[in-house]
Amino acid sequence: MKRTLAVLIENKPGALARIVGLFHQRGYNIDSLNVAPVFDESYSRMTVTTQGNENVVEQITKQINKLIDVIKVSDLTEGSHHEVEYVLLKISTKQFNQTFKRKLKYFEHHIIEQDNSIVVLGVMGNSASIDDFLKSLNKKSLIELSRSGCIGMHKSEKHLTI
């Protein structure tokens, strides 16, 4: 089962390596990872997606929590939450045809760059539908692809703050 964890972690050198190292050390996989400083930049917010049953995720959460640099961890999947991912796509202008545009229209997107040969698009959506969208495309039509990894947040009144 896919799980999405949100982590608040001190913005210190090596802190990220501790998290990534922990996953490896304990035999867990990271499917996607997103991290950037937030608010006063003294700490970062991280979203990690991984696989596992409840017990595994409970262990992961506890082990992450044990790291001295970690301020808080929360398993977003436990309750209702928002998840979104941003993708940069580079395709040839020729491929930017009606079929392509039809698939695109289910997503929030915008054209970042366009000329006679190249189109760069920004596409936003939840990770699962982005997976489907990308799968439906002709591999050869994609020149470059960059995904932000999932970022997430609890819904409405539940907050993850320090």
Partner: peptide
């Protein structure tokens, strides 16, 4: 040293 000791320390500082 920080790297090689990472999985076997409670914490480390440089």
């Amino acid at each position: 040293m920080i790297g090689i000791s990472r999985p076997i320390v409670k914490h480390s500082y440089i």
